[in-house]
Write a protein that binds this DNA or RNA. Structure first.
Length: 698
DNA sequence: TTAGGGTTAG
């Protein structure tokens, strides 16, 4: 061979040198020397030249190299395999294994069938490979046929075949069969147990995972890191901090923290169980943090509604130059949605467009939810339409988004479309549907949907569904009907239900049922400041000012804290905060002046302050001033002077908008020619041209 | 030659 004279690069030398002294059994040589396709080509060429390829055992060795070396393709291996006259079971095994590992499990199963047709008897190595392929495919019926073959050929449950059979059944939805085999298994090792865990965790049966783990501990079989990973995942989903901590302590005591996957699971478990600080300590201690570790910590914050922390950590992740993946983006988007962080969310959307051509279901859904929660409902619809694949989550996000943005009828149109496309709604979808009816005053429709969810979809109404129904009736002024509805509830109504009724009583000036609601709330828990304020306003609305004052003074007497009204407005990515009657800001006089100007202008356009809801402890003359200093008015006035004409103003509020501010905002939108979007605790108000998207139902 | 794992959306 000529390259013994002129040495080519190192890698080729080793392969070539080896070839010149080809050993009797070349298996390990071929496997070790063939590291690249080029090596493989050379060895293969040599085998053909020397006719060694016709030696079945040598052909098999090169076949195995071809199946293992080339990263994503089996074509080279196929070309060798096709030239083997009468391949034996070992050759088939190599090919089946190759297909299984190289993401073509369906070809692995097909080849197994071909093997049987060619009367080549499978051996104890064939079955684990082909069963693994079935597991990957979720191919239960093929798996069952293979099981029959296993029995026919007399293989028992011992060893690998038994374990892979259990794994196959467990991961293809045949968990009961898997359990039967597991029970009959003569010698259950850690792999046997892990195969069962894999099945339960794949189907989300987290309780079964923890119960099985306790049985494993009783049995005395030593668990391993894979077991702990599955168990920790289950603890996270179940918020089972007790068992989770036990595993955590075991990991600490046995010095297993160096396994980053295991630590990531611990971080995730602590975060999902609410111990965010513990999670963060572990996370900070991790030497190597991959994208999954970062995502676990970020989603921990996001799910705990610590959205600012989630965004901060995301920025740290970018600073650490770790590339976010889909999961990261989905978590961060959901935090942006809660915060109304429009700029960051938009940036993420651009990032998604650049990075991933196809919108996946979770990504699309997170974007729909994000835009809807930022009041950009048209953009939410646009993203939804772009999604090629949608599931019940995506439809629900859109329906809820439309409902909270005051487009109840459109929400119901989408609900009908969802049914036409055969996507079955779930309990949360119905919350969106009922909320659409409530916000749009669709009483009869709401009642029909409430009946239909149980009758046609077999969904048992939860407390929230009953609450929505009370809201629908109450808002429409059908207070007595709402009261009867509560009395007929098959479950014990909670305070949310009674507070919903109380709010309706306030809106419709119904003192009788208002008093009754307060009584019922007080039976369950101490009254909130909001309850007193609603009751006080209710009395004031029917002219019982003394009672109103008495209720107000109770707040002070009992020392009940009131949550101050707070509005946020985002300008150039900076969030400004306003509190009611806030004079702490350095520019407050400027803002108060702007507020005054704003009020004067809308007064001349017909705005009349509604003093009914003003704090009753304020002196009569001051009432209108107090009204004009509600946080949303301050925020709107601030935005009016700080932004260019016609720019949309976006306000986020911690409480519900009061009726006076609602009225004022309508007039402001017309007088100043501005679209104003206010997100309150429950929903959106899009003020434009003197009216609001909520049609004054809120 | 043969088996197992973590983060995501309403």
């Amino acid at each position: 061979m000529d390259f013994a004279i002129t040495p080519p690069p190192a890698k080729t030398v080793s392969a070539a040198m080896a070839i010149s002294q080809f050993p009797e059994n070349p298996k390990s040589l071929i496997l070790h020397q063939c590291k690249t396709p080029r090596d493989l080509n050379q060895v293969h060429a040599h085998l053909i030249k020397t006719r060694l390829i016709f030696n079945p055992s040598i052909a098999e060795n090169i076949l195995e190299s071809a199946a293992l070396v080339l990263a994503n393709s089996m074509e080279y291996a196929v070309s060798i395999f096709d030239k083997i006259a009468g391949p034996n079971s070992s050759a088939y095994n190599v090919m089946i294994r190759g297909f299984t590992y190289k993401q073509s499990p369906e070809r692995a199963v097909a080849l197994f069938e071909e093997m049987c047709q060619n009367s080549v008897q499978p051996d104890e190595f064939t079955f684990p490979c082909v069963l693994k392929a079935c597991s990957r495919l979720g191919a239960l019926s093929e798996g069952k046929q293979i099981h029959a073959q296993v029995l026919k050929l007399g293989f028992g449950l011992e060893g690998f075949v038994g374990n892979t059979l259990i794994h196959m059944y467990a991961s293809c939805g045949g968990i009961h069969i898997a359990h039967k085999l597991f029970d009959r298994m003569p010698d259950r090792g850690v792999m046997t147990w892990n195969s069962m865990f894999a099945g339960y965790s794949r189907s989300g049966n987290w309780i079964e995972v923890t119960e099985l783990f306790r049985k494993m501990l009783e049995s005395g079989v030593q668990f391993d890191e894979v077991t702990m990973i599955t168990v920790l995942t289950a603890c996270a989903r179940l918020a089972d901090i007790e068992l989770g901590k036990w595993v955590g302590d075991y990991i600490k005591a046995n010095g297993l923290k160096r396994n980053p996957t295991l630590t990531t699971c611990l971080v995730d478990m602590y975060a999902k169980c609410g111990s965010l600080d513990l999670a963060r300590i572990l996370f900070d201690q991790m030497e190597q943090k991959d994208v999954v570790a970062w995502s676990a910590m970020i989603s921990g914050y996001s799910q705990a509604r610590k959205c600012k922390e989630a965004l901060d950590l995301f920025h740290q992740m970018q600073a650490a130059e770790v590339d976010p993946n889909e999961v990261t983006v989905v978590s961060v988007l959901s935090s942006c949605a809660v915060l109304g962080a429009l700029e960051t969310g938009r940036w993420l959307h651009l990032f998604v467009k650049k990075r991933w051509v196809k919108l996946t279901v979770p990504l699309g859904t997170a974007l729909v939810d994000f835009y809807a929660k930022c009041g950009m409902i048209d953009k939410a619809i646009e993203v939804f339409m772009e999604m090629r694949c949608k599931n019940v989550f995506s439809w629900t996000a859109l329906i809820q988004g439309l409902a909270s943005n005051g487009q109840g009828k459109r929400a119901l149109d989408f609900f009908r479309q969802m049914q036409e496309e055969n996507v079955p709604p779930n309990d949360v979808t119905f919350l969106g549907v009922l909320s659409a009816c409530s916000h749009s005053g669709l009483v009869e429709e709401g009642r029909d949907f409430f009946v239909s969810m149980n009758r046609d979809f077999d969904i048992e109404p939860r407390m929230e569904h009953y609450g929505s129904m009370v809201d629908i009736l109450g808002r429409a002024g059908r207070i007595e009907e709402a009261y009867q509805f509560i009395n007929n509830m098959p479950i014990m109504p909670n305070t949310v239900i009674w507070r919903t009724l109380l709010a309706s009583c306030r809106a419709h000036k119904n003192v009788v049922f208002g008093d009754e609601s307060i009584k019922r709330i007080a039976e369950i828990e101490p009254l909130h400041s909001g309850d007193y304020i609603l009751l006080s306003n209710l009395y004031a609305s029917v002219g019982r000012l003394e009672d109103a004052m008495r209720v107000r003074s109770l707040i002070k007497e009992k020392g009940i804290k009131k949550a101050p009204g707070c509005s946020l407005v985002e300008l150039d990515g900076v969030v400004h905060e306003f509190l009611s009657e806030d004079d702490s800001r350095s520019c407050s006089s400027e803002i108060y002046r702007a507020t005054e100007d704003m009020i004067n202008r809308i007064r001349s356009a017909g705005y009349v302050p509604n003093v009914e809801e003003v704090r009753l402890d304020v002196e009569e003359d001051d009432k209108e001033v107090s009204l004009s200093h509600h946080s949303e008015k301050l925020a709107i006035a601030f935005a009016l002077i700080k932004t260019r004409p016609r720019t949309t103003i976006r306000i986020s509020k911690n409480l519900r908008v009061c009726s006076d501010c609602h009225n004022a905002a309508k007039v402001i939108s017309k007088v100043f020619d501005r679209e104003i979007i206010v997100r309150d605790r429950n929903r959106f108000h899009h003020f434009k041209d003197g009216s609001c998207s909520c049609n004054d139902f809120w």
